[in-house]
Design a protein around this nucleic acid. Structure first.
Length: 276
DNA sequence: AAAACCGCCTGTCGGC
DNA sequence: TGCCGACAGGCGGTTT
């Protein structure tokens, strides 16, 4: 599922090929992908314009247009944004929208489960995009410090796994990297957030930063649907320590790994390395 | 206020 | 072999 490293990889891979390319045509095949804009208005606003910058905030991609508007996309579970230099290649079965450039290339939004979204807003006006306007700290920014993490967890009774998944606290972690971070830090997913001591918070902070950075280097985790902006698979699935490893042994201590629902999500952990 | 639950979707998998 | 329910999980919305 696209989390911060996957979305960042899409951003980096798409930027060189889609920026400053005039948009010639726009086809929306699944209208519900558009959130607060009609297909007609969307087409009118984008046709003839260019994307001039592509940024990321949490799991959101923000396409800045040359007309003071921004297109905000979220891939949710199975969304893909892929650039095709050859528009003659047949559309994938679940293609939600296609941006055709004057150059002949195309940007395609493919999405099997159709949860992905696109918004169109005046630059920086994110009020209507609730998830974006309420995002917490960017975990690879300078603002994400041990002190910040300490503040987020202080006196909180929620389970740490749930807190890591809360986008209003930290922006961009999903189920995979939350589990990987907790394993790396040796913390049980059901630990009460407020019970973590400073030593544990330091380890967790370090683990979050490290796993996200390494996953970006690996161009993300492809378990099934995720692809880079060039349609290629990532490689970090080969470096996962714990996620999806039920039935296997802990890579650190050899004990049988366990999994259970925590905060509504399947959570993988080592009962020996991550004590409750 | 915060946590738990549901709906949105389709493909895949295990069980019978 | 085919059918069916469970499951995958991000987020918005509603309920508890």
């Amino acid at each position: 599922m696209p989390e911060l490293p996957e979305v960042e990889t899409v951003r980096r891979s798409l930027s060189p090929v889609i920026l400053n390319q005039p948009i010639k045509s726009l086809n929306v095949y699944y209208e519900r992908i558009l959130q607060h804009v009609s297909p007609a208005q969307f087409r009118r606003q984008l046709t003839g314009s260019c994307f001039i910058n592509l940024t990321r905030r949490g799991k959101y991609l923000i396409f800045q247009l040359d007309n003071d508007l921004e297109m905000v996309a979220h891939l949710r579970m199975t969304g893909r944004l892929i650039y095709f230099s050859d528009a003659k290649i047949e559309l994938a079965k679940h293609t939600s929208a296609v941006f055709g450039f004057e150059s002949g290339g195309e940007l395609r939004f493919e999405d099997v489960r159709k949860f992905g979204t696109i918004d169109l807003v005046p630059r920086g006006k994110y009020e209507q995009i609730k998830g974006l306007s309420t995002l917490g700290v960017e975990p690879l920014s300078q603002e994400f410090t041990v002190e910040h993490l300490q503040e987020l967890t202080r006196k909180r009774s929620a389970k740490i796994k749930g807190l890591l998944l809360d986008q209003t606290k930290i922006a961009g972690l999903g189920n995979i990297y939350a589990d990987e971070s907790l394993f790396m830090a040796g913390i049980h997913p059901e630990r009460e957030a407020g019970s973590l001591n400073l030593r544990e918070l330091k380890k967790l902070h370090q683990a979050i930063v490290e796993v996200l950075q390494e996953a970006i280097v690996g161009q993300g985790t492809t378990l099934r649907d995720y692809r880079t902006g060039y349609g290629r698979e990532g490689s970090f699935q080969n470096k996962l320590q714990i996620y999806g490893k039920k039935g296997e042994k802990c890579p650190r201590c050899g004990v049988d790994l366990e999994y259970k629902k925590v905060a509504g999500r399947t959570s993988h952990f080592c009962p020996a390395c991550q004590r409750e």
